[in-house]
Design a protein around this nucleic acid. Structure first.
Lengths: 217, 217
DNA sequence: CCCGGGTTGAAACGGTCGTTTGAAATGAAT
DNA sequence: ATTCATTTCAAACGACCGTTTCAACCCGGG
């Protein structure tokens, strides 16, 4: 358990190296399972640097959640703005694409973005109430806008029905982002499939869109 | 952090109390976040009893996975046997219902079964390779049969397409079982929705069936 | 040159972790 | 009543956890 992570830019400031490493290791191993010593070691930083820059492990986690989700949700909001500026109201398929594509773009095979996607997927399924609170704060502004837009696109559904399909979309995307599904469907000991491809993204969008539309008309 | 769990039958043998409590606490708090002291305390057992009955924490976890998943997968196999005994081949909707209903039956609001469902959902998203291996061993015989049946019901899909929809079904069901979605779609601080109802189960089945069928015909 | 805020470093803090020990309690068979 | 395998118990083990301390370091402004 020593030596720095080669995927982390050693020239970046300590603060940034810590966040990048936290996103990577929390996503790969889980949050509780990642010790500050292993993390700071991989980041090429001293163990005390976490307390100096973030006050605590949870502070670092919050910074990681913020970095990972802010860009994602900004992009979702931006594309939703575009959709809603058009003359005709957005379809369900449009809304799914706008929500899912930025998330799956992260999960594309190469680069650090796959680690970000895994981190987000992991953090979405964390049981700790403190963590769930932080995630909910990041997600809530986007939640509200998509719930409203889905409600307009599906006027025959009540509020519970809208929340159900939205939650299913978020949940299924999170599962794909976490990479948990990559390891299912294999004989014990068999190798793991490669990362999500663009063709997979289209399949995910089609799956979710059809699922949402099920029951209407 | 003391006192026994009132939901655990205090008359049952220590070994069974430990498994029941492990399923409950691992599901609620996560595996790493649950200490053996808190667990044995809630089970009304001595800390050393885990090592005596299961060798280690991981041994107890394996016993919990086995107890939680064996009945579930036996029921799935039994109902799949029924389906395949019929003259005409099972439809996708039939297959989804047979796979999903036993899992969602667990998640019904009252009783210990909700804890079992949460435990299974949690365990499906655990990052640890050791745990994933154990789960895969339990799931593999069912995997193989459902993948084959889905392949026959969807002759226009290649192997990758079949695995994709099967993994999506397993993943989405797991997310619903874990209860992770219950806490989405709310303003920070707002209350959590009650457990899954029978009407929810029908919605989940309809959602997944439509998602799987998307792209065919 | 020296100063002082910002940052890093080695070492240690108290606490909790999973696990182990060895003796006490239990209970059915002899 | 005695044996003996099974099960439970309080106590302790070493290891590792997140966090804290405080001296050393860096470096631009006086």
């Amino acid at each position: 358990m020593s030596g720095r992570d080669p995927a982390v830019d050693q020239e970046a400031p300590t603060r940034d190296r810590l966040i990048a490493t936290a996103i990577r290791l929390f996503g790969e191993r889980g949050i509780e399972a990642t010790s500050m010593r292993a993390l700071t070691d991989a980041a090429g930083a001293n163990i005390a640097s976490v307390n100096y820059h973030f006050r605590s492990k949870e502070g670092l986690l919050r910074a990681g959640i913020d970095r990972a989700m802010r860009a994602l949700n900004d992009e979702r909001r931006r594309r939703l703005d575009e959709l809603e500026a058009a003359p005709e109201p957005p379809s369900v398929a449009d809304l799914v694409r706008v929500f899912v594509e930025p998330g799956l773009a992260l999960a594309s095979p190469r680069g650090q973005s796959a680690a970000v996607a895994r981190f987000i997927g992991r953090v979405l399924s964390e049981p700790s109430p403190r963590i769930r609170e932080t995630v909910a704060e990041q997600l809530y502004p986007v939640d509200a806008r998509f719930l409203a837009a889905l409600g307009r696109a599906l006027p025959d559904r009540d509020e519970g029905g809208i929340k159900f399909v939205y939650a299913s979309m978020v949940g299924l995307l999170g599962v794909w982002q976490s990479g948990a599904l990559d390891q299912l469907n294999r004989a014990p000991g068999q190798r793991v499939t490669p990362g999500t491809t663009t063709a997979d993204a289209e399949r995910v969008i089609a799956f979710i869109t059809a699922g949402i539309l099920a029951g209407s008309r």
